[in-house]
Design a protein around this nucleic acid. Sequence first.
DNA 1: TTAATTTAAGCAATCGATTGCGATAAAAAT
DNA 2: ATTTTTATCGCAATCGATTGCTTAAATTAA
Lengths: 350, 350
Amino acid sequence: MKNQKRTTIYDIAKKLNLNASSVSRALSNNSNVSEATRKLILDTAKELNYKQNSLASNLRKGHNQTIGVIVPRINQNYFADVIAGIEEVTYQKGYNLVICQSNESSSREVKCVNTLINQHVSCIVISLSADFEDDKHLQTIREHGIPLIQFDRVAEHLDTFKVLNDNEQASIDAVTHLIEQGYKRIALLEGPQNLNIFRQRKAGYLAALEKHNFPILPELIKENAWTKELGAASTKELLSLPEPPDAIFASTSDFSALGVLEVATKMGLKVPEELGICGYSNEAFTEITSPSITTIDQYSVSMGKTIANLYFQEIESSDKDNTPKIVSIKPKLIIRSSTLKNNPEELTTD
Amino acid sequence: MKNQKRTTIYDIAKKLNLNASSVSRALSNNSNVSEATRKLILDTAKELNYKQNSLASNLRKGHNQTIGVIVPRINQNYFADVIAGIEEVTYQKGYNLVICQSNESSSREVKCVNTLINQHVSCIVISLSADFEDDKHLQTIREHGIPLIQFDRVAEHLDTFKVLNDNEQASIDAVTHLIEQGYKRIALLEGPQNLNIFRQRKAGYLAALEKHNFPILPELIKENAWTKELGAASTKELLSLPEPPDAIFASTSDFSALGVLEVATKMGLKVPEELGICGYSNEAFTEITSPSITTIDQYSVSMGKTIANLYFQEIESSDKDNTPKIVSIKPKLIIRSSTLKNNPEELTTD
DNA sequence: TTAATTTAAGCAATCGATTGCGATAAAAAT
DNA sequence: ATTTTTATCGCAATCGATTGCTTAAATTAA
């Protein structure tokens, strides 16, 4: 269906009895073209409906004003927000975004990486899939001289640019808050420990307990409680313990926390009086549930902007092989009703 | 920072004392290369860490296995879902996605279109920005021979491929449901009427009322009630009328419906007994509010898949200039508590 | 053994834009 | 009037992969 070929600089040149080089220079607005012919060229370019061929231009210039982004799921709020943040900045700079989703599968992640390398993108931004084990594909990126920025879920030992949330500190804040509210037996719903973020959140949980001389009770730590359903299932198990917890920190996600809340409500447990609940991510719905759910905001959009700015300020601008930088963003504990056992008036105000 | 140049087919050719053409043929797995040299080439390609340069390849082949997508906001659930659906299919076909967001601004939309044209994408998929007025940029796409698929928010009079929701029917279903539940004065929160989707939803509202011989009361129709805040404001106005409505159809979005719910709750109105509420989009939170909100599911992910399939089945495969097709997807009314005045047991079960 | 045919690989043009270098003409300096 | 400088513009190579055509070699047929 694409029959008519598009007009090139040669078409413009021919029509004006000029050389293509002049047309190129006029169009790139750069140098050594008289004002008269420039105007002539610009006019006929418009007349002939000329549009530059970025493929040719990029091939010649040896680079591609494009940044590749690989995320587990495009339509997961957190990642969608990060992408929106990246796009906001890259758009200003005239860069494009090529988006891939790994679908939480590392084999697909590898394919995405290869495609982006083929595309000669200027930079690859990635957040790892859940079944991450091998970082060979990340090494490949570096071998090809493509700057790599990892965010959120990263291969920690790999020396690349990183934009992270301080998951451990956020976790400490959350658990400390629970302790201060008078909860005594605090359970943890944890995620896959091959991912740094979940390891860190667990570490924060442990650190906070230890600091306040709380015992660490393995039976109160449930792994693999990622989704609402899994969170609900774990909650049932926890609440049927001889000594059940009086608070649950769903460090995996707000969805998991929602599962906790639903089970608690169904079992007639009062939240926050009899069970405190804290989620993670500040999903929109946490504000709406009754009671509203205490959670942690990750500043996702601004994380995206940070990622893009990192590229433009640290990588693109400098010509030297600069050492990778790590930017850490401190998430914010959003205190809501689901954990306010003591002081309901202490609600966070924005 | 990108100092080492990448290995090309010429590097491989030189190393094996072959011609680049043979390398190209071996790599493309096509024709006229002996098994022996093919293996040799493949091996050294791996050894030298060769990755094809898609820019050069696409330039030569005259096309680009890339589809450009322009949406108002990447991180709006509906659009994120559609994109995820598109990506799912295009990934299988080895196509890439270039994503742009117009930020609800048509001037930015125009720039996005131009970038995608420059990139020589194989197809452009677009959902229009809120301030849509002029379709010149869409015409430009066609002038450049690039297939165009509009979805959801479209320029109706333009003869292009379209993937749509049957907004009018969905609206009829919703309002009919309200009528059947015994609501007598049904208000409408409407969106910008320059967008087809909001016009259609309004038309459905009017059609349903007319069919049941309900009077159309202009004071019950509120424009510009898109967000939660605007929805709340309109609700306040509606409820302070001498004869306030007993149901509100927030045809703009679930967020607007949420605003309605919050105002109603604050004013002590019982939902659904004293006020029925229906939203649009089936956002995740509508299930969680108390009462849960009746809404309309748009099958967003499957819309994305439909879009991509339309491209591959109708456009890419056929070589003739085929006439644009319109695919309409029937949304589904999800009945929840917020409208069940009569029969609370009638809840939709999935 | 020679001719006809198939197979494998090289040659060179091409996609469209960019850019260093050189050429020409006009303007400025002497 | 002659030389020097500057402003414009053309020439041609280049980016890396693809592909039609040609040639050389190998295989088969006669």
